[in-house]
Amino acid sequence: MDRRLVLVHLYPDLLNLYGDRGNVLALSRRASWAGWTLEVREVGMGEAADLAEADMLFVGGGQDREQKTLAQDLLRRRDAILRGVDRGLVVLAVCGGYQLMGRRYVTPEGEEVPGIGLMDLETLPGPGRLVGNVVVAAGWLEEPLVGFENHGGRTFLGPSAQALGQVVRGHGNNGRDGTEGAWAGKVYGTYLHGALLPKNPAFADHLLRQAAARRRGEVPWPKLDDLEEHAARAVLMERMGLRGQR
């Protein structure tokens, strides 16, 4: 029986930023611990990607000034990504990648960069950067999301977008409305890194389970031993005055 999943990792070369590798590593290790094989296909700028065969797509975070080059390449892939999403492609976009999933991104210089419009959101410049550890209550997960944020852009959700969760500590999308990230169907976007998935095993498994369901329908997903992950989370929670919560 086929227990193979394919993940396309977009721009591993360009967005060689903290934790992106960790997210992909977490998905691939956790898949194998659960008895699945995750095949990772790295796709750089301008390179062809066969999204029809992919179960998961990961787009990481870049530097602010790489956003424009990135947006051009993403726009060329827009139709392929939309078709994939229609067929159940699970998408995770972090930081810069998340911003470009929206309708538009306005640079600090006021220049407008079009996003691919996968989610109803837009990102505007703001004063200073939003930096620090974050805890996000996500009711659809058994545990809050924890991570680190570092972004200058402020993201605002439109009426048809839904937040990934509510900020408990930190800034989130824009530091004002208490939301963090967004999701639409199986497309997820967030500012959290640190790395995100190794420290949020429930979220990682949630993504993998959805990808597996695309292949084989609802499948049982084993509960893994997450002792180290929980120790890392506990320190952060305690420091944020959230002792005892997991």
Partner: peptide, 13 residues
């Protein structure tokens, strides 16, 4: 260290 858990997670992966 203060982030022993994070280091352990990294090495686990």
């Amino acid at each position: 260290g203060e982030r022993a858990g994070d280091m352990a997670v990294r090495l686990k992966y």
